[in-house]
Design a protein around this nucleic acid. Structure first.
Lengths: 201, 201
DNA sequence: GCGTACCCGTGACATTTGTCCTGCCGCACT
DNA sequence: AGTGCGGCAGGACAAATGTCACGGGTACGC
């Protein structure tokens, strides 16, 4: 019996996946959480064999939780299940010790299959995505550039960002300009989009 | 037997929902589509009793398709199933003749229940969302203001937008400025966010 | 007919944004 | 000891953005 922990914020998706996995006669969903910061506590309590984690979660990123989970509960394999196939996300997932990376676009049938393959020690990664991650190269943005871009997503002005990061406005503009240069874009919004697309944020 | 058409772009979600609905002994998924422009043709071919439509779809909006569907196949009720509870979307759904409006945040169990209630002629709407839609008032943006905002989402410059809409740059700036004023925001990005939040785009 | 709302445009203006150059500091690597 | 990189900041400048005041045109309702 494969014991599964399920982390997914959208109630309908979470419920549907849980029902489906419970239908498989060699699987059992032992814990369901909707927020990133509930993952590790729930895993420690229920000691699942496999953690099925979304990335975009309230409270804490699934990638973040995955890293801690691998440390505190090495017996539990991590399978990332996410909406977008961002090269940077795949890279970070592998660095965090994940055993697999699935995108929600694929048919449901693959899910149970992938879980079993992970249980058998295999790694499950979409070949096309793996190629994209290798060709895209590592994240070129520095910590501060990421923070500046992240603070700029919702239309904040330079002054807003400077306040939030406790920096000078000149410094913020330098970071943004640098990020725009590195992403090969024309303004901060394009830079945000490009960085997001690559999973650099 | 309730015959259901399912329109949802995310493969895993679509497959999971289809499996779940097929498990109900009074329901049958007779057609599945992944794009908005496949909805009407598929419905005309399979004549379902209920169309379960996502809003954000490639090719064509689910709301758009819903309006045509109600005209060409009045016997088929429309149930909108969407990620975000935007007041403007609810309003447009009602104007298009939808019988219900569900957000994907709710537990799966509600789905089958809602479908049966719609079949019985009831209307299914989250009360909190209905209140929000009423208090938000109608869409204040004109057609052109919407187009300008939509063209500005990905960081396009005024020149880009002007080219795409075949307008003068000065005109585009006026539309954007007007939209910024109507949304009570400080720049185009905040305006886009606010308009999106309300379902005005 | 008149008012109103939308469409489209121009010109002027202040502000914001993006770029480039300069400088200082600390840290790591050689 | 020197080099490079990242963090941090300031100044100067051109370009983009947002605002405002002003036109003209069409359509619709009263």
């Amino acid at each position: 019996m494969i014991r599964v922990l399920l982390a997914e914020d959208q109630g309908m998706m979470r419920g549907a996946l849980a029902l489906l996995l419970d239908l498989e006669d060699d699987m059992e969903v032992v814990a369901q959480v909707a927020a990133g910061d509930e993952i590790v506590p729930a895993a420690l309590e229920h000691t699942p064999d496999i953690a099925l984690l979304d990335i975009e979660l309230p409270g804490r990123s699934g990638l973040d939780a995955a890293a801690e989970l691998r440390q505190k509960l090495p017996g539990c394999a991590v399978l990332i299940l996410t909406t977008f196939g961002r090269p940077g996300h795949l890279r970070r997932a592998m660095e965090a010790g994940a055993s697999g990376f699935l995108v929600k676009d694929r048919p449901v049938e693959e899910l149970a299959v992938s879980i079993r393959r992970v249980r058998d020690g295999e790694r499950v990664i979409d070949p096309a995505l793996a190629a994209a991650a290798l060709s895209a190269g590592p994240n070129p943005l520095t910590q501060r550039e990421r923070e500046a871009l992240n603070a700029a997503v919702d239309g904040a002005t330079v002054a807003d960002i400077a306040d939030r990061l406790s920096l000078s406005r000149a410094t913020v503009r330098n970071y943004l300009s640098s990020a725009i240069g590195k992403t090969g874009t024309r303004n901060r919004m394009e830079a945000v989009r490009e960085a997001r697309r690559n999973g650099w944020l």
